[in-house]
Design a protein around this nucleic acid. Structure first.
Length: 859
RNA sequence: GCGAGAGUGGCGGAAUGGCAGACGCGCCGGACUUAGGAUCCGGUGGGCAACCGUGAGGGUUCAAGUCCCUCCUCUCGCACCA
């Protein structure tokens, strides 16, 4: 009778596996439901964050399976990446070995959780059978002009000997792995993917996602893409031919442009300096600024500074000669790398102008305020207003002026309205070994030559001695490196850069649909059957990069006829973090929970530890609970149930050992209830009496069923679904022995327990199966249909109506559900408790809400 | 600074504008027991009460945790993007 998860969980996992119940056939026999959780990086062992995502996903997968869908629920491994290399040289192993061992270990951990994956579809992105197709996509992109090579300044870590993404640079400008090493800037030829060609569609596609995706994620993506409308305006050089084009969102302020600022990297900067004989001075500034990494340079506390280049250009509308400065706050990668400076109406330009004594000219006058005075202004006026000192445009409001000035520039061929994006093309080159080789060859005669499609895959050589701590071992792999040029046959060298691992994760969700295909990356027919993902579950940390890259890839593959529809993920659930309180010993720093005794004393020194606020579980803060320990102690069902009960999925979850105990206790309670009543249930007849007792049991049962179904299916409120199940169990505990034994009522109780177990199945699948077997249920519970609620027994015959007097509840009436308004009003007025407050007073107003309340207002 | 979200008992959290605090944890009491840190049953926002209570202050409404305005605090994202 005792609930011992260790005795039952393994047994049922085996039963599921043997029956192959989670295998999803290629052919559809029911409407499909593609449920996907973000696949893990095989870091070694799963952590609570993984347990949470995979539990949420599995709940939905199991639920939808019972709802009659053919569920595709796959899993795989995001298996390339830097940590494998770091671990490899730390532990003297090979990245491949390390990765595959981790995969083997974590696969077992996931299996222990009882997640209902179709393991036949498992993929690891480090297998040539996977990445060969991504090499093919890259060749296609090269042909389509979407993959190209560009010299670019990138963050460089001397220690890693590789390029870092901006997000891999710490706030203080050090490397995210080597936090002592300052990140520097380095110019390298890099491969880029033209994601900006899809910028507009990535933005407009949000229309299709609205409702299915959390609004905050869409907002983050909007910011990331950063669309802004404006104009490109050409400023002719004051001396000689040519001109400089700027991008501005404020063409209406053109008459107020009194100087120009350029990115230090802009080629015209040194050109001007040379001509003016100011090379030395300007070079000093340019060198100093461009040595700084992007984070430091764009940080908020960065002081604006610049240098006069010696050059001048002409404001196309005022005709005045304006000086050109190089300024540290102008970004070369954005817009045209040059901006017209309007100090009166842009705060940055204002500060810059005041610092270098440049003229300020007011051209936008805010409505209803004193005329702005350039001499006394202390800040720029960035808001709207009326145009002044703007020639023929004077008097227009700024919105109108934007359009009019742009139109005039277009007519004169001096500019045009354009749209700019903050989104940059995606740099995919990494100077790294453990990644997918970029399939091109460098030939002295032919330049860059793509590897012919029939020679794919370019297999990453895994037999290299992995001894170098730094740099890319591929660069030293002479045997692999030297190949004949595919074009001319002369000796050439392979590209040694590998892909950013976000490339792998940009299409894995499609490959799951056709994982074994060795003739093509994807079969369009199968894609049409299973794509898109109906429900994607993962963390917010991927709101921008992964989710934008994947949307981009999906759109590209759509254009190549491989992927159906415009969007890869119909609905997205972004789950909250798993947090736990931190403990810090004054002498020994962060403490693991097991390093502290029951009285909150450090086991090492006996000092009282400080209990800090709850923070995201992390090894560094030692506020972690190991999933394996948890499962060993309580079983997978308890882990799952607690995680789903402790908080709604999108909110952060506070880990609490006593809460886990509570979940375990509840499962024990269900277990004892059902196990104890199993004989009575087995003996119960199929027909129930038409008694009050039966009606009550059935009403509770079906009400719970409706609530749980709605909470899971529509609201994703798994915590309230569980609390409804708990209430039902509490109710069943109060049912007397006699009712379990009596033929008339036991049949209704049999129905109750049957439905209870079905509802429990997606939450605590192992315990559910075990009890299902005990009550003589047929087949595997997880393969059964979700029960249909009998709405007729849910309907109440009477309802409680609250009576308020002046907004305060004074009495409650029990009336028939169909009672007429007039009747209820009269009952309310006649109620003695109500009369106490209404006696002798004038009734001003009464409000009647059917089946809810009567509200009486008295003077 | 900008944007998004959140703030409810001792704690995690419930509440289509209609009885605030479901459910769980913790705590208190009872039962069963040689025993209980197992299990079962009951109680549990504050106040003796009238009443008061959802971060603070206003407002709309017969009625506000929920809607509107002004603040405060916290979390996350963006942050010289011209």
């Amino acid at each position: 009778m005792k609930y011992i998860p260790a005795n039952i969980e393994g047994k049922w996992r085996k039963a599921w596996e043997e029956a192959g119940v989670f295998r999803c056939p290629d052919d559809l026999s029911a409407p499909k439901y593609y449920c996907l959780e973000m696949f893990p990086y095989p870091s070694g062992r799963i952590h609570m964050g993984h347990v949470r995502v995979y539990t949420i996903g599995d709940l939905l997968a199991r639920f939808m399976r019972m709802r009659g869908y053919q569920v595709l629920h796959p899993i795989g491994w995001d298996a390339f990446g830097l940590p494998a290399e770091n671990a490899a040289f730390r532990h003297g192993t090979h990245p491949a070995k390390w990765t595959w061992e981790n995969i083997a270990f974590m696969r077992e951990q996931l299996k222990q959780m009882g997640i209902s994956y179709d393991w036949d579809r498992e993929i690891a992105t480090c297998s040539p059978g996977y990445y060969r197709w991504e090499q093919l996509f890259f060749l296609w992109m090269m042909k389509d002009g979407l993959a190209y090579r560009k010299r670019a300044t990138l963050n460089w870590c001397e220690e890693c000997q590789t390029v870092l993404a901006n997000e891999q640079v710490n706030r203080d400008g050090t490397c995210f792995i080597h936090d002592q090493t300052p990140v520097t800037q380095k110019e390298l030829d890099q491969w880029f993917l033209g994601i900006t060609k899809y910028a507009e569609e990535l933005l407009s596609g949000h229309g299709e996602l609205a409702g299915g995706w959390p609004e905050n994620i869409l907002e983050m993506q909007r910011n990331w893409i950063g669309r802004s409308e404006g104009a490109e305006i050409r400023f002719p050089l004051s001396d000689g031919e040519g001109g400089i084009t700027v991008f501005t969102t404020r063409p209406d302020t053109l008459f107020g442009a009194t100087f120009m600022s350029m990115a230090p990297e802009h080629p015209m900067v040194m050109e001007f300096a040379r001509r003016a004989g100011k090379e030395k001075q300007v070079r000093e500034f340019v060198d100093r600024v461009s040595r700084q990494d992007r984070t430091a340079r764009t940080g908020e506390d960065q002081v604006k500074e610049g240098v006069f280049t010696g050059g001048y250009c002409i404001n196309p509308v005022t005709g005045s000669r304006i000086p050109v400065y190089a300024a540290n706050f102008v970004l070369y990668e954005y817009g045209t790398g040059a901006v017209m400076a309007v100090p009166a109406h842009d705060q940055r330009d204002f500060e810059f102008a005041r610092k270098y004594g440049l003229p300020v000219s007011v051209v936008v006058q805010p409505e209803g305020e004193d005329a702005l005075d350039p001499e006394t202004m202390v800040a720029a006026h960035e808001g709207p207003g009326w145009l002044v000192r703007s020639g023929e445009f004077t008097g227009m409001d700024s919105a109108e002026g934007k359009k009019a000035i742009t139109r005039r520039l277009e007519e004169r061929g001096e500019g045009r309205g354009t749209v700019q994006y903050r989104l940059r093309d995606w740099g995919v080159s990494r100077q790294r070994y453990w990644g997918c080789p970029i399939p091109v060859v460098h030939c002295e005669a032919c330049g860059i030559v793509p590897v012919p499609e029939d020679q794919l895959p370019v297999v990453l050589p895994e037999d290299l001695p992995y001894t170098r701590e730094r740099g890319n071992p591929l660069a030293a792999a002479e045997e692999w490196l030297r190949v004949p040029c595919p074009a001319c046959g002369k000796p050439a060298r392979r590209e040694t850069d590998t892909f950013d691992t976000f490339v792998e994760s940009s299409w894995y969700f499609l490959r799951y649909i056709d994982p074994g295909n060795d003739r093509a990356p994807l079969d369009p027919e199968k894609m049409r059957r299973f794509a898109p993902v109906d429900q994607y579950v993962g963390g917010v940390e991927h709101a921008c990069m992964h989710l934008i890259y994947a949307r981009f890839f999906h759109k590209y593959l759509r254009d190549k006829g491989l992927a159906p529809g415009n969007e890869p993920f119909r609905k997205l659930l972004s789950q909250g973090m798993v947090c736990m309180q931190t403990m810090e010993c004054p002498k020994h720093g962060w403490r693991y929970p097991e390093e502290v005794d029951a009285d909150g004393k450090c086991l090492q020194c006996g000092e009282q530890v400080d209990v800090g606020r709850s923070m995201k579980m992390s090894k560094s803060k030692r506020n972690v609970v190991e999933p394996s320990t948890l499962i060993a102690r309580y079983g997978a069902d308890t882990a799952r149930l607690f995680i789903l009960f402790a908080a709604p999925p999108e909110k952060d979850l506070d880990w609490n050992e006593q809460g886990v105990e509570g979940a375990f206790r509840f499962l024990g309670r269900v277990y004892r209830l059902v196990a104890q009543r199993a004989p009575a249930i087995a003996a119960a007849p199929r027909q129930w009496d038409d008694s009050e007792e039966v009606r009550r049991i059935r009403q509770v049962t079906h009400k719970t069923l409706l609530k749980v179904t709605g909470d899971v299916e529509e609201r994703f409120h798994f915590n309230t679904a569980i609390s409804a199940i708990m209430e039902m169990v509490n109710f069943l505990y109060l049912v007397e022995d006699a009712a379990w034994e009596s033929p008339g009522t036991s049949s209704a109780l049999r129905e109750a327990v049957t439905i209870l177990l079905h509802m429990l199945a997606p939450f605590a699948p192992h315990a559910g199966e075990e009890l299902w077997e005990r009550i003589g249920g047929e087949g595997l519970l997880c393969t059964r249909s979700w029960p249909a609620a009998d709405v007729s027994v849910v309907r109440e015959e009477t309802v409680e109506v609250v009576v308020q007097v002046n907004g305060k509840v004074r009495s409650k009436l029990t009336v028939g559900t169909t009672a007429a308004e007039q009747e209820v009003r009269e009952l309310a007025m006649a109620d003695p408790k109500v009369r106490e407050y209404t006696e002798g007073k004038q009734v001003r107003k009464t409000v009647y809400v059917p089946r809810k309340l009567v509200s009486i207002v008295v003077a």
